[in-house]
Structure formats: C-alpha cells, structure tokens
Design a protein around this nucleic acid. Sequence first.
DNA 1: GCTTAACTGCACCGATCGGTACGGCTAAGC
DNA 2: GCTTAGCCGTACCGATCGGTGCAGTTAAGC
Lengths: 198, 198
Amino acid sequence: MTDLEKGPRGLRRGRGARERILGASRELFGSRGINNTGMDELCAAAQVSKHTVYQHFGGKDQLVTEFLRQHDPDTMPDVFDRADLTPRERMLAAFDRPSTVPPRDVTPLCPFIGAAVEISDPEHPARRRAHDYKEAVAARFAEAAREAGATDPELLGEQLALVLDGASARTRALNAETLGTAAAIAATLIDQAVPVAR
Amino acid sequence: MTDLEKGPRGLRRGRGARERILGASRELFGSRGINNTGMDELCAAAQVSKHTVYQHFGGKDQLVTEFLRQHDPDTMPDVFDRADLTPRERMLAAFDRPSTVPPRDVTPLCPFIGAAVEISDPEHPARRRAHDYKEAVAARFAEAAREAGATDPELLGEQLALVLDGASARTRALNAETLGTAAAIAATLIDQAVPVAR
DNA sequence: GCTTAACTGCACCGATCGGTACGGCTAAGC
DNA sequence: GCTTAGCCGTACCGATCGGTGCAGTTAAGC
C-alpha cells in the first residue's frame, strides 16, 4: 500500500506497476466481483500493460490470491489494536466501520466472502486464505472477549464473527446498510456473555 | 416442482423439459455458482437440448431470475407455518435445518446470497428477487416474534434474519457448519427480546 | 553514457462464453 | 392417421475470456 513498496524479490521497477495492479484489483474485484472483471479491464484500470500483470503475478488466480493475501493482513488492527478502548468497546468498534463513502451508499461486501462465493473450488488458495481470515477474525474477537471476562470467549468470538459476516452478506442482498442491526446484536451478545455485566 | 407442471402458457409438452431445466439450475447454480456454470453444461445436466432452454426461458439471465423466483416462494413454510410449534420454537426451528446430506458435508449457500454476490448490477431482476426474499424472511421472523410477545418484533425479526444470513455466508467461507452457533445467538436474542422470558 | 530490466503496445492464440439456425424426430389430441 | 408442437442434435455464430509473443521504449544505477 505504501507507494514505494518493493517487488517480489526487491526488483528495481520503473514506476510501481505492481501496486497499481493490486489497487485496481481492490477496486474492480470489490465492486464488480472477481468473475465479472476481465483482465483487459483490470489492466486498463491499473494503467498497466497486460504483459506486466502476468510478469508480476502468474495469472488471474494467483492475482486474486495475492490480492486477498494483501487485504487486511493483520486482521482489523485499527479495531483490535486500539489501546484507548476497553475490550468491550473494541468488540463493538468492529461494527462501527467507515460510514458510507459517497460513491458507495452501503458498506461494500467483504472480499473474502465474495471470493468464497465466486470461487467454487474449496481447495483454491484464495478460498484457503478466506478461511484463515475468517478464523482470524473470530480469534481476534475471542481475544477481546477473554480480556472482557466473558464466560466462554471462544464462543462469543465465533458468534460476533458470524454476526459481522451476516451484516456483510445481508447488506449486499438488501443493498442497504445493516451494520447497525449487527451492532445491536453484538451488544446484546456481549452483555449476555460477560458475567458481571457493565 | 411437481413433476407435471404446466409450461409458460399451458402448452402441451412431450416430457417435462422445463422442470428438468429448473432442477439442473438448482443443482448447478447452487453447487458451482451462477457464473461458473455454462449453458452447455446446464443443458447436459438437464438432459435437454439447448434450443429448448432458450424456448422456455429467454436466456441465462431470465433463467437465473426464474430459478430464484421458483425457489422457496412461500418463504420457509416448513418452518413458519408449523402449527405444532410455539412462536419461539418456530423462530429457533429456522436454525435447525436439514442436517448435512452425505454429498455435501455442510449446508449449501443460500442461493439468494449467491446471486446477490455474483450479479453486480443491483437492478437485475434476480437481485430484486433476492432483496424481496430477504425482506420476506425478516417479516416472517417478525411475525413470529410478535406472536411470541417480543418488545420490538420488527427489530428481532431483522436481527434473526441477519444471523441466518451470517450462518450461510460463514459456512461457505469456513467450509464448516456454523448453524449451531447461529442457533445459540438466536436463542440469546429471543430470550432477551421477550419480556417475561420463558 | 552504458547496462539492465521494468514496462509498453499491439497483435494474436485457443478455449469458452451465451445464443441461434435448421432439419428431423416423437408423441399427444382429434 | 393426420396435424401439431414440444423436443432433439448438431453445427455454428460473434464476442469475450485468460494468456502469450515480440519488438520497442523508458528510466534507474553504476
């Protein structure tokens, strides 16, 4: 994401094509979906020659995989690594994401869910990455839940992760924001799972 | 679904091709996804000539739309129309679905979520159908919630619908059943939303 | 200023996509 | 037994897909 990141093996690069490609992937795979985005289209958006794409990444599948690997590698650090919030507030902050940028009127679909739906082969590396990410989110929630003193942190973590996924999928299906609903559910679950309550 | 349903306008039919086509749609769109299923492939699975498909349905888009329109037209009647269950039990029954048939080891993805993800145009008829269905599910839950005496039936209905969608999406992403987790969430939400409790 | 290589532009490949044309078969209804 | 029409089989269409070849341009590092 830094505009001067090194290539695959510290290669020299003329003008950072790799980053533009990944940027265009984020843009197009996110808005139009993976299968509805052609490589020509992607090259045009990245202002990059087709040849360059296949030089950096081996092919579309590997580009998709790499795109997902780059996406949120630390699993929502802007939520779970905030030291200024209590564990409970951190859990709730996950449901209080960037509020609707003008171009999109609703929160875009989680790219991992998108990949899991669009790629039918469960053994595909992108599917594996999606699997790992989803488990990582649950683990992050569980960690915060443990700090908050939840009776069963693992269970609460899995529950909150599921609710977050529900918000993503349902927002897409309804084409209307549902994160607020999800936040209310989260609050209820947390209060119910933490003995002393607040 | 009845194996002798009439065609578009009560036509005569030699041997029920229309039903086989819709059956194959259910099979293939469900397992491999819409965009990953070719028309040739679908024709082969339905044991139907390509010509016949385009005679019954105008094209792939319209077939997808019709497939979704046929799918669960009464919005889970096997759950919400059961007179032998209390409203609360009915709500919970929605999370206790057909338990993992051998070929699939997990609950398949909700076809409406699939369509909402695979089709990027929000104005596509299939997307509209998905939208309507998802609202219908929430309304069904809300109806049961009202009967159960929930404080805010509409809210609880929307919450339970979101949790159900979360289970569908997350089951796909993890490739492991998550309906149990969803059921636990549902129970918590219901107990919290119904004043007298059980 | 030379080397080196990332990057470009375009033409092109085979495969597959959704969709159509056409001629022939078969079974229901009178 | 004739009509009627749902259905078949195949060959084929143009478009687009992911991916490659090749000659040429640009810019960083020494």
